[in-house]
């Protein structure tokens, strides 16, 4: 049983490109759900707006990469407005219903055969990410070594002895951009939620009628929160599309949204660093479990009659789900959450 491999891989993933997708999408969700109390169950669709906005602009319409980014953000804003205008005046649960339906509509439209010559239907699209990787400052043929950090044919290896981290030069570029985006979003969201604007959002989460009675245009604030969260969700979509160099409609299913919620609740909703910590922990545990079970089978510690290699995937999801249930029972406020606040909510 190769524990070094298991932990190295799990930790590598815990700060890698996939974790960044979850972290960024959950930062957006935190603005909407954590601070404002908006039940947006369509965050995957906002990510899809970013991913497909970029891919369609570049591949189907031959626009420059920069235009693709703008179109992705623009599509997310339009979607937030379309969803918000009819529902934000209604009770909170209506937004939940509408967003979950809208996310499915987006996915179905993306995989529809009618315009598959543009969207690629259920196969999705590729060939839009090269302009992004051309911007990379990392040399894919680099070979050097300083202390415990080395480059081996463009592959970064950070060897800490008990564990090591390894990233390809493409991953490295995605991570550089991804972590810069995380930093920017955290600064912006941090400034916003600690301003009087953010105080109004929290007030709306607590009781929007009360906030209305104090002279605040609740609808406008909810719309702003939905748009900001949607823009951040679109950025997660860019990272998703670019890190895989393709877009596929079925990856933007409702599961995707629910992972964002798991990440947010695990880290602590309405806590600035909750989404980042939650994403790292979620993706670390997910990988740790899969790798451990796979290694256990490979080294015959787990008999194949008990667990076949093909059953590892479903079992990991089962265990993650169980973990989520236990978390909600024993630490519903998440890692960074405030128990005192939560007790008030239960009352």
């Amino acid at each position: 049983m190769d524990w070094h491999f298991v932990f190295s891989q799990a930790l590598t993933q815990a700060i890698g490109p996939t974790m960044l997708i979850y972290a960024i999408a959950a930062i957006g969700l935190n603005v909407q759900f954590g601070y404002t109390g908006l039940l947006n169950f369509g965050q995957a669709a906002f990510a899809a707006m970013g991913a497909y906005g970029l891919a369609l602009a570049v591949v189907a319409f031959g626009l420059p990469f920069g235009w693709g980014i703008l179109i992705g953000f623009g599509a997310a804003i339009v979607m937030a407005l379309l969803l918000g205008i009819p529902t934000l005046r209604l009770r909170a649960d209506y937004l939940a219903i509408v967003t979950i339906a809208a996310a499915e509509i987006v996915r179905r439209l993306a995989r529809a055969t009618v315009w598959s010559e543009y969207t690629g239907g259920s196969d999705g699209m590729r060939g839009f990410s090269e302009p992004f990787f051309e911007l990379s400052p990392y040399n894919p043929d680099a070979n050097w070594s300083v202390l415990f950090v080395s480059m081996d044919g463009g592959r970064l290896i950070v060897d800490l002895g008990i564990v090591d981290f390894q990233y390809s030069s493409r991953d490295l570029w995605v991570m550089t951009v991804g972590w810069i985006l995380v930093a920017i979003f955290l600064v912006v969201v941090g400034l916003l939620v600690h301003s009087p604007w953010g105080r109004v959002l929290k007030g709306i989460r607590e009781d929007e009628e009360a906030v209305r009675s104090l002279g605040k245009n609740v609808f406008a604030y909810k719309m702003q929160a939905l748009v900001i969260g949607g823009i951040i969700g679109a950025a997660a979509g860019f990272i998703f599309a670019l890190s895989r160099a393709n877009v596929q409609p079925d990856t933007f299913s409702t599961d995707f949204t629910f992972y964002f919620y798991v990440v947010l609740i695990l880290g602590g909703a309405a806590r600035l660093f909750g989404p980042v910590l939650g994403a790292a922990l979620f993706w670390f545990l997910f990988n740790l479990l899969s790798l451990t079970l796979n290694q256990g089978i490979r080294s015959d510690l787990i008999p194949r009659e008990v667990l076949a290699p093909t059953q590892v995937g479903p079992l990991v999801f089962f265990l993650m789900g169980l973990g989520m249930v236990l978390l909600l029972i024993f630490r519903p406020q998440g890692i960074l959450g405030n128990r005192r606040e939560l007790m008030l909510d239960v009352r």
């Binding site: 009087p196 604007w197 105080r199 109004v200 929290k202 989460r205 607590e206 702003q224 909510d345």
Partner: peptide, 26 residues
């Protein structure tokens, strides 16, 4: 507003706050 402090309950009510505009909040 239960999960906000008494002080925040008061401050949120003040009218014509510039910081309540999103851009100014930054």
């Amino acid at each position: 507003l239960t999960r906000m402090t008494v002080m925040d309950n008061m401050l949120i009510a003040a009218s014509a706050q510039l910081g309540e505009r999103m851009w100014a909040g930054l």
